[in-house]
Structure formats: C-alpha cells, structure tokens
Amino acid sequence: MARKSLIQRDKKRYKLQQKYFFIRKLLKKKIRIVPSLNEKWKIHIKLQSLPRNSSSIRFHRRCFLTGRSRANYRDFGLSRHILLEMFYACLLPGVTRSSW
C-alpha cells in the first residue's frame, strides 16, 4: 500500500496537468511554427514559467486498489500483485497459466 501523501501528490499533479494542458499545447505549437530564434526563446521562457507539476511526464499511473506506482498494467489499471491474486482466485476469465 502506497503512502497516502504520495497518492494525494499525484492527484494534485493530475489536476495541474488538466488545468495547463491546452496552454502547454499552444506554446509548444507556437515554438514549432515561429521561425525567429528570439521569439522561440521568449515562448520557451513562458513555457518554463508554468508549474513543473503541470507537465504530463511527472504524472504517475497508480494501481486502482493499492496505489502502487510501479508494475501497472494500463489495460486494467492494476498492479501485477493484484492481477496475480485475482488470477489465483479465478476472477479473470480466459486467462491461462503458461507452462513449458
């Protein structure tokens, strides 16, 4: 189980990401279009003035049940530990155990 403070921090990052998404997208698009280097620097400074946690890279996917940030499966939203427990409890239909 992840610490509650880490889960709350990621929720805050997600909200910031949603808030500044279009602003970031617009500034990045302007950087690609503008031919002048000086204008690119000005736009880059504006981009750097946005909060760091508003970047989508800083957001971590977490397990829906445990809050674990590593070894998550995107399709299920669960960590590998929970998936394994569900598999052993026969809660996942169609999943077979590999053997060779």
Rank of each mutant, 00 (worst) to 15 (best):
A2F: 00
A2N: 07
A2Q: 01
S5W: 05
L6N: 14
L6D: 14
L6W: 11
I7F: 12
I7Q: 00
Q8W: 02
Q8A: 08
Q8T: 03
R9E: 14
D10L: 05
D10V: 03
D10N: 10
K11E: 15
K12P: 01
K12Q: 06
R13K: 02
K15G: 05
L16H: 02
Q18F: 07
Q18G: 06
Q18D: 03
Y20S: 03
F22K: 08
I23W: 08
I23K: 08
R24P: 09
K25A: 08
L26D: 13
L26G: 05
K29D: 09
K29I: 00
K29A: 05
K29W: 09
K29T: 08
K30F: 02
I31M: 01
I31Q: 04
I31R: 06
I33N: 09
P35Q: 05
S36H: 04
S36A: 11
S36N: 12
L37S: 15
L37F: 04
E39R: 11
K40I: 04
K40T: 02
K40C: 07
K42M: 04
I45D: 12
L47W: 00
Q48M: 13
Q48L: 15
Q48Y: 12
S49T: 12
P51F: 00
P51V: 01
P51H: 02
P51K: 04
R52M: 13
R52E: 09
S54E: 09
S54I: 04
S54V: 03
S55P: 06
S55M: 08
I57P: 00
R58A: 14
F59N: 09
F59L: 09
H60Y: 08
F64N: 09
F64I: 06
F64D: 12
T66D: 00
G67H: 08
G67E: 07
G67F: 03
R68Y: 07
R68W: 05
R68V: 04
S69W: 07
A71I: 11
A71K: 14
Y73I: 13
Y73W: 11
Y73H: 10
Y73M: 10
Y73E: 13
R74H: 05
D75N: 10
G77D: 02
S79A: 14
R80I: 03
R80D: 09
R80Y: 07
H81N: 13
L84D: 15
L84K: 12
E85R: 13
M86N: 04
Y88G: 10
A89N: 15
A89Q: 15
A89M: 14
A89D: 15
C90G: 12
L91C: 10
L92F: 09
L92W: 02
L92P: 02
L92Y: 07
P93F: 07
P93I: 00
G94F: 05
G94S: 07
V95R: 07
V95D: 06
T96Q: 08
T96K: 00
R97Q: 15
R97V: 13
S98C: 08
S98F: 04
S98H: 00
S98A: 11
S99I: 15
W100I: 03
W100Y: 06
W100H: 11
